[in-house]
């Protein structure tokens, strides 16, 4: 079976500074992986490199998505192929209607799959369902994308986008940070709803509590641009009680 994501010896950085110093990671369909690691260790960098952020350059190694080498594929095409990045710090896009934005993204992905675009009317229905699942107030549809959203609302909006787009790989960069207890439960419900035999999720988190709701198959500890330790879900608990020094030291 082809892995959904297969990263081999990836070295990547920005402005000539190497941040990822040889990362290998393989995610099979149906799996949930979690990455933990100290601040500045390169977690967000990894997620952006996989999503294809133009500021980062890959020095060596490769990323395969469903067996296809991603290196020369621009970020928008990666997204249409089914990679989704939930940002640690989602940007605000004033004036751009949230549901319009989502519909555009949704239709871009459908078009890629050779499906017909959904008209605004049908899309509204689909969106309403997803918002209900995430217990989101309908008025968020008509606001500007993340415009004036609270920190937690922005995170929930990322999960809404994920729910609408149904990516084959969702990378969620600290989506749990800044969520209150109730929101965390709801967001977890959204992530679990996406868990299907042919999808995969990569969770980046600092906290065990998310992993109580979304149980990972594997946990990796990233430090200084390298994966220093991998294990099953109890590794997360161990890290939480013993700290990163236990791994890095």
């Amino acid at each position: 079976m082809t892995a959904i994501l297969d990263i081999n010896e990836l070295k990547a950085g920005l402005n000539g500074v190497e941040i990822l110093k040889g990362i290998s990671l393989c995610i099979q369909p149906g799996e949930v992986h979690a990455i933990m690691g100290p601040n500045g260790s390169g977690k967000s960098t990894l997620s952006k490199v996989v999503a294809g952020h133009p500021d980062y350059t890959v020095a060596s190694g490769e990323i395969l998505f469903h067996g296809e080498i991603l290196t020369d594929i621009p970020p928008d095409a990666r997204a249409r192929k089914g990679i989704f990045l939930g940002f640690q710090y989602p940007v605000e896009i004033p004036g751009v209607n949230n549901s319009e934005f989502l519909r555009m993204a949704y239709n871009a992905r459908r078009k890629e799959k050779g499906l017909e675009e959904l008209d605004p009317f049908d899309f509204q229905e689909l969106l309403a369902d997803k918002m209900k699942l995430l217990d989101m107030d309908a008025r968020f549809k008509d606001r500007g994308v993340n415009e004036g959203f609270s920190g937690g609302e922005k995170k929930r909006n990322e999960i809404l986008q994920m729910a609408v787009l149904e990516p084959s790989l969702a990378i969620l960069d600290e989506t749990d940070s800044g969520l209150d207890v109730d929101a965390l439960k709801i967001v977890s419900k959204g992530i679990n709803a996406l868990r299907k035999p042919d999808n995969a999720v990569l969770l980046i988190t600092h906290y065990q509590r998310l992993l109580d709701y979304v149980q990972p198959d594997y946990v990796h500890v990233l430090a200084h641009g390298k994966i220093l330790k991998s294990g099953k879900k109890d590794l997360a608990r161990e890290v939480e009680t013993r700290g990163y020094d236990w791994v890095t030291g």
Partner: peptide, 29 residues
């Protein structure tokens, strides 16, 4: 228009030109 905004669109599968158009239309709404 910031690079981060454009990347946000791109990471959702929307091409750059459409992203710019949407941002400008938002600006002029």
């Amino acid at each position: 228009i910031s690079e981060d905004q454009l990347f946000y669109f791109e990471s959702r599968g929307i091409v750059r030109e459409d992203a710019v158009a949407m941002i400008l239309n938002g600006f002029c709404k």
